[in-house]
């Protein structure tokens, strides 16, 4: 900011603008906590994503297994396999999401560290 002010001392007009900019910047800083809020929101969204994905994957696995059993008449075996695979798929999705979240968090922290 200091060299900007140094430049602007040549003409009074830009000095006014710079002054305004400085004050705007200050005002923005004072009302900064919006970042927290936004982050909070996407966390709530994340929670919804993880919980539904975990449950629905199991249901879909079971439904597929039940479908195969129903049409092929292979007893309870495919529904059991579907249940296990569904659980695995749900956990895998959750795991992937958490990894994604961690990567984003890291990026955000790095950005904050820079600014």
């Amino acid at each position: 900011m200091s060299d900007k002010n140094g430049n602007s001392s040549n003409s009074p007009k830009t000095s006014d603008l710079d002054d305004l900019e400085q004050r705007l910047e200050d005002a923005k800083q004072r009302h900064a906590p919006e970042v927290e809020y936004e982050n909070d929101n996407s966390l709530l969204g994340m929670a919804w994503r993880i919980s539904t994905e975990l449950v629905v994957a199991v249901l879909v696995g079971c439904a597929l297994g039940y479908g195969i059993d129903y049409f092929a008449g292979t007893g309870p075996w495919f529904i059991i396999l579907g249940l296990v695979l569904g659980l695995a798929a749900g956990l895998r999705n959750t795991f992937r999401l958490v990894l994604e979240m961690e990567a984003e968090e890291k990026k955000r922290l790095e950005k904050q560290g820079k600014s």
Binding site: V56, V60, L64, L85, G86, A89, G90, R92
Partner: peptide
């Protein structure tokens, strides 16, 4: 399974 679960979820 996880692909089919997407639209359902």
């Amino acid at each position: 399974i996880s692909f089919i679960a997407r639209p359902v979820a």
